[in-house]
Design a protein around this nucleic acid. Structure first.
Length: 484
RNA sequence: GCCGCUGUAGCUCAGUUGGUUAGAGCGCUUGAUUGUGGAUCAAGAGGUCCCCUGUUCAAUUCAGGGCAGCGGUACCA
């Protein structure tokens, strides 16, 4: 075949920000999801599923806009002209659901939900365009008890998935505290709205950059990053910056402010509640530097963070940051109903939590694959199929080789599948009414000592033969060897 | 979005001072070693040298412009 006649083949590439997830991770992830679900159920939350996409106007303000049509969300237009968007979180669909069924729902309404969400933004290290969230929310509960419960449940989730006490912390703040604090340095009123946002954004980076860099962002100079890109400063003077830092360090300020007092009062009440339930400062901690999303939180906000050292590929210790968070959002359902419906909730970034767990657990050996029945004699496929069926009936995960290659390739296949053992019945065994079971795990250990190929192959290590009707028993004994 | 770096085989990368059949290691497929995972040996598959335009007799190589990937930064419901 000449090169000119070659067809142009598609490249097997993944869309930007997407990834394939393989067997080991899926199993571990499912196990983790079950544990989280268990905690939510224990607290009395009910499952709810909503679709992957919604009408764009129902999801909120992140619509395809004129300047950047695809910023933020993935959207497409229906034949009728309606715009649809893939959900970017699980809270917006909840708000739609609650508004639609408001009269019929018990109030407070408590639900949990999990699934993929999509965000059309630049992927980064450990950040993808499709990822899984696992949320729980309480709608119609204005009390601090609902917020306190969220914090406690978040702590319980961390421990349920195997992160030990002391390896995580739930940090809690209140948006009113931050807003009040800003009033004390003269940033109240509409005319300072932009500055307020910029200040919050700068403070949100406290765990990312050192203090002097934050000061640059807050002040008039601005900050230049490693690549030479420049971020404008928020424009505060030295005194204002000092006041902020003092408060963040000590939780105190000399200046009086009604909103600040209210926020601090709510935090104090929340602390009393969780302490009464036995959650001490090693688990749930008041921290005035917690910021979270700027748009919709109206009261308490909290963040779950892992506190153990996490190392990157190069072995450097990196800030892993938050694996979940939440807060009170009293305005979200109001978009549909016109009246404020108080709500509070939490969201767990499942992939990030999983990654954190992996870091903690180190890598263990791959999950064992199925037992493989080799096809030695093509004429006797039916016999091999029958053996496989017998193993399956006995509850042993197994498969017959369905490829077309020889024994060597079948062994390689078994190896790649992490098969614990293979079943061999060639003509010798068949005539003797026997089957041979080869223990691949043991064989792999022995193979480290191979010196001569001939001896190795003739010696046929780590295998034994039994009568055909003892197959199941023999396989079980091999599997039992390698359990745990 | 902004800044920087990088684009040659599935992966990691050589190489071509511009010239005819573009290479290695690893991986993959098939086979040999009487029916056995490692090792060895043999054969094989796999490339628009990121794309476009320009310069040139000739561009994977030089120039300009794109695009993509990675990293930083911004945004983050």
């Amino acid at each position: 075949m000449s090169k000119k006649q070659k067809v142009r083949r598609p490249k097997p590439r993944l869309p930007k920000g997407m990834r394939d997830i393989e067997a080991g991770e899926i199993r571990a992830m499912n196990a983790m999801l079950e544990k989280i679900r268990g905690v939510y159920e224990l607290y009395g939350f009910e499952p709810l599923e909503t679709p992957a996409y919604e009408y764009s106007d129902c999801l909120g303000k992140f619509l395809p806009d004129q300047e950047r049509p695809n910023a933020g969300v993935f959207s497409f237009e229906e034949d009728g002209g309606d715009w649809l968007s893939l959900r970017y979180d699980l809270t917006a669909p909840l708000a739609r659901y609650v508004a639609a069924h408001y009269d019929a729902l018990p109030k407070p309404f408590r639900r949990y939900a999990t699934g993929s969400v999509w965000r059309n933004e630049k992927p980064g290290p450990g950040r993808f365009r499709q990822f899984t969230q696992f949320d729980a929310d309480t709608v119609g509960a204005p009390t601090g008890a609902a917020d306190a419960e969220m914090c406690m449940m978040m702590a319980d989730v961390m421990e349920a998935v195997g992160i030990k006490r002391g390896d995580y912390v739930i940090r809690v703040n209140n948006r009113k505290v931050l807003d009040g604090l800003m009033e004390t340095i003269g940033l109240d009123g509409e005319e300072h709205a932009t500055t307020r946002v910029n200040v919050l954004r700068s403070l949100d980076k406290m765990d990312k950059f050192p203090r002097d860099q934050i000061a640059l962002l807050l002040g008039k100079e601005g900050r230049k990053d490693e690549s030479g890109d420049f971020t404008k400063g928020a424009g505060l003077d030295k005194e204002q910056i000092a006041t902020l830092f003092i408060f963040l360090d000590n939780g105190k300020t000399e200046k009086q402010n009604a909103l600040l007092e209210e926020g601090l009062g709510e935090l104090s009440d929340l602390q009393d509640l969780v302490r009464a339930a036995g959650y001490e400062e090693d688990r749930i901690r008041i921290d005035p530097s917690v910021i979270r999303g700027l748009e919709y939180y109206t009261g308490p906000v909290f963040e779950a963070e892992v506190t153990f050292d996490v190392k990157n590929d190069k072995g450097q210790v990196v800030q892993f940051g938050s694996v979940g968070g939440g807060g009170r959002y009293d305005g979200l359902v109001a978009r549909f109903k016109g009246v404020e419906v108080p709500a509070t909730g939490m969201s767990i970034g499942v992939s990030r939590l999983y990654t954190a767990m992996q870091m903690l657990a180190q890598k263990d050996r791959p999950d064992p694959g199925p037992v493989l029945v080799l096809v030695m004699d093509r004429e006797r496929l039916a016999d091999y199929q029958k053996m496989t069926k017998i193993l399956r009936d006995a509850g042993i995960r197994s498969e017959m080789y369905v490829g077309s290659s020889g024994m060597r390739a079948q062994m390689k296949y078994a190896d790649k599948r992490h098969a614990p053992c293979v079943i061999i019945q060639g003509s010798d065994e068949y005539e003797a009414g026997e089957v041979t079971i080869k223990d691949l795990v043991k064989g792999a250990e022995l193979s480290k000592e191979i010196e001569d190929n001939k001896d190795w192959r003739e010696g046929r290590p780590a295998q034994f033969s039994v009568k055909s009707d003892e197959l199941v028993e023999a396989v079980r004994s091999v599997l039992a060897r390698h359990e745990g």
